[in-house]
Design a protein around this nucleic acid. Sequence first.
DNA 1: GCAAAAGTGTTCCCCATACACCCATGT
DNA 2: ACATGGGTGTATGGGGAACACTTTTGC
Lengths: 239, 239
Amino acid sequence: MTRTEFSVTVDLVLLTIRQAALQVMLVSRGIPPHQGRWALPGGFVHGDEDLGEAAARELREETGLDPRDGYFEQLATYGRPGRDPRGRVVTVAYLALLPDLPTPVAGSDAAGAAWRPVDEVRGDLAFDHDEILADGIERARSKLEYTPLATAFCPPEFTVADLRAVYETVWRVRLDPRNFHRKVTGADGFVEPAGGTVIRDRGRPAQLYRRGPATSLHPPLMREPTRPPDQRPDGRRTS
Amino acid sequence: MTRTEFSVTVDLVLLTIRQAALQVMLVSRGIPPHQGRWALPGGFVHGDEDLGEAAARELREETGLDPRDGYFEQLATYGRPGRDPRGRVVTVAYLALLPDLPTPVAGSDAAGAAWRPVDEVRGDLAFDHDEILADGIERARSKLEYTPLATAFCPPEFTVADLRAVYETVWRVRLDPRNFHRKVTGADGFVEPAGGTVIRDRGRPAQLYRRGPATSLHPPLMREPTRPPDQRPDGRRTS
DNA sequence: GCAAAAGTGTTCCCCATACACCCATGT
DNA sequence: ACATGGGTGTATGGGGAACACTTTTGC
């Protein structure tokens, strides 16, 4: 019975929506291995830490954000021999869905950290981070179907249109604004009125809402549509 | 930067349906820590193994089963300091849904392995295995809603009633046999006819079916009903 | 014949979709 | 005035739930 010794790291898939695109937080690696390449933020788990604590610590160190600003959950664990040239390293990946806060990237570690559109970085990441990122995006997509987590991408107060933009961006679809409005405001505990109104661009002012108390939606409120081939706004087809 | 050394184990949540109950494979621990208590089967990850390989190896060693007999996926990873008195041990839990095959428990390690109804063991397991088991059951429950994995609990050929019993057992509900039959046989790629018929108890012979090619069901075929309080056959209430 | 389980047909109703229409603002 | 986005009302259709009914076996 070999009791091989491992190092254990946490890696973060931090997703947000900026400029109408799904973006992921990446760091440019300053040291080998994979020096100069983009990678998911992360680091070694300390001796007295639970895994989730280590992930939350890294989140604070790298971005200044708090897990409670958005949503935070364990994603999956990766331990293929050879995935890290430094030795036998198992990494526990965490997924966070965050609002596009004016990121106070101040922290020291955060040098070289940046939001990047996921479409522009797929295939270019260090280690097995492409695989981890793909799993995180897939998880986020499916979570939107049966949980109220779309609000995790929104700031504390948001409009129905903001929330709709989340689904449209993550799923790459157009949703009918009128039916969307009814479903969201009608769903029990999904959102609750915050009182104010705001004018985003042109047109009638929109009501502001806060996250509601719901933690799950049964039946699922929003369902990822099975797209007819021409419905993608960018004209591309699903494989 | 402390690079603490960890041991890494895999633990298996093996679920099946026997005697109309959801059952989990447990081993009685022969050595400390937690000697004499029930625990999930598992073991240390070897130096040259991927995590999934280690889990599949443990499955073979402990039960003689193959991952491909049913369904197999990573569940979650647990690494709370102090969860194992032997030191800093991180465990990657895997979930398997298996048919009630005439288990060839022959293997040496399998001494003391047994299927136990999940209702009878909750709260009594070693380490943090109660938490892991609860997470596995919850994952299995929700997977049935939007995947065709209920067939993983069935032998290669099964009747619609067999499949219905899976949902009824895992969800603790009664489902209408007539509507269930139509939904299952009508869903694209969920099941396909195997040709034969079989008489289980009394009544008209039932058609046999095999697993179909579908890997996902969009929209979800079966939905866990939100139960009116009196609908549980055993009369108990959901918390 | 009778009980029991398999399987089909039919009705009703909810709810998602589609879309006409009105509201409130900036220019 | 008119363009633009916010929000409501309403008709239509598909699918799930409920259940009457037929089929095929064992006893």
